Amino acid sequence: MIKTMMERITSIQSDNDFSGSVLVKESHKVLIDSSFGYANRAEKINNQSGTRYGIASGCKLFTAIAICQLVEKRKLSFDAKLTECLDVKFPHFDEHVTVHHLLTHTSGVPDYFDEEVMDDFEELWIKTPMYHIRTLQDFLPLFQNEPMKNSPGEIFRYNNSGYILLGLIVEQASGLSFTDYVEEHIFKKVGMIDSGYFAFDSLPERTALGYIDHPDGTWKTNMYSLPAKGGSDGGAYVTVTDMARLWKSLMNHQVLSKEMTDRLLTAHVQEEKGSFYGYGIWINKKDVDVVKYHVMGYDPGVSFHSAYYPEDSRIVVVCSNKSSGAYKIMTAIEEEWAKVTNR
């Protein structure tokens, strides 16, 4: 199976010029650990398993874990209203928006990147230069004075602004900057020694540059396409090995108690048939059984998919420093696994 799976991955890489790293683990055994393409094209520096990749929205899980930790410490509650746990004025927001609503994308607050209004993330930085976006407060002018999209709890609507608000809540409740909190209470706790929230203009060693390819064969980096530093809605950097550590620690209740882990992994809201959302995490079910917990992220120059499969404790991490590619690799791995296990 591993040989066939690797052949599929290599074929997809060849057809689509996949650039990134792939890690597949079953329990404690590494089945696949392969990397392709360049972390730095100009210098021809190869990607490797120790390369740090941006994961865009894949790190919403870290934000949800941070909130759950603070609830465990009784510094917050899931039912707390936004107005009770954040000293920021939102003149048009519904006063009934809660932490739970924000975690599950059911708050109805306006999203600073509204796909009904724009389809190119880079449009955001025409009026607000991306190099000014370095803290969570810097995002507020993008949505703070906008009207609600719908009533709290009414529908699931994926929402980046909601996770910016959660990050601000973490800061107010903990007294730390959001990125410092995550690095101290999550990354260090589980041994994610190579992961962090890095600014574009001060990237550490072994960090992959994100690449945007043009139809004519030219390319550019994503340096001017994203906020200068990521935050609670996206933008952390991880290695495939560190991400696997996060899954293992989460499922072994090393970052949260069993009770709180179960709360995070509960299917709180349904997005479509078989697909649900917990707190910062997607959940796929077949009938009543959970078949996959997963996170994903897409930005210009970034594509990321990672999953934990509870039936056999399998972990898959696919990081790419291009705008697409991770999904096809992830799908191929799942298809080859299904052939062998008949699932």
Score class of each variant (00 low, 15 high):
104 T>C: 13
116 E>P: 00
130 M>K: 07
124 L>Q: 09
110 P>L: 04
140 L>R: 09
110 P>H: 13
111 D>I: 04
138 D>H: 13
110 P>G: 05
122 E>C: 08
109 V>P: 09
139 F>N: 01
121 F>E: 15
114 D>A: 11
111 D>C: 03
140 L>S: 08
122 E>T: 15
110 P>M: 05
130 M>H: 14
110 P>Q: 05
120 D>I: 01
125 W>L: 08
111 D>T: 04
143 F>W: 07
139 F>L: 05
121 F>N: 02
123 E>M: 13
108 G>M: 06
118 M>F: 10
109 V>I: 15
129 P>M: 09
124 L>P: 08
141 P>E: 12
132 H>V: 08
108 G>Q: 07
132 H>Q: 15
141 P>H: 11
116 E>D: 13
135 T>W: 02
109 V>R: 11
118 M>V: 12
133 I>D: 09
137 Q>N: 14
112 Y>S: 02
143 F>C: 07
121 F>M: 13
138 D>S: 11
136 L>P: 06
109 V>A: 10
104 T>I: 04
116 E>T: 10
117 V>M: 12
139 F>R: 01
126 I>P: 01
117 V>R: 14
132 H>T: 15
110 P>N: 06
123 E>T: 12
112 Y>I: 03
138 D>V: 02
124 L>K: 08
130 M>W: 03
141 P>C: 11
110 P>C: 07
122 E>G: 04
130 M>F: 11
124 L>N: 09
116 E>S: 13
115 E>H: 02
106 T>L: 00
140 L>C: 09
137 Q>Y: 12
119 D>Q: 10
121 F>T: 08
137 Q>F: 08
124 L>T: 08
119 D>G: 15
110 P>W: 09
111 D>P: 02
115 E>W: 02
140 L>H: 07
138 D>I: 02
138 D>E: 03
120 D>C: 00
142 L>T: 06
107 S>A: 14
143 F>A: 07
131 Y>V: 12
141 P>A: 11
118 M>E: 12
143 F>Y: 12
116 E>C: 01
115 E>T: 14
120 D>F: 01
142 L>S: 05
124 L>G: 09
120 D>V: 00
106 T>M: 00
110 P>V: 05
141 P>D: 11
128 T>F: 11
108 G>R: 08
107 S>Q: 03
114 D>L: 03
128 T>R: 15
134 R>V: 12
106 T>C: 01
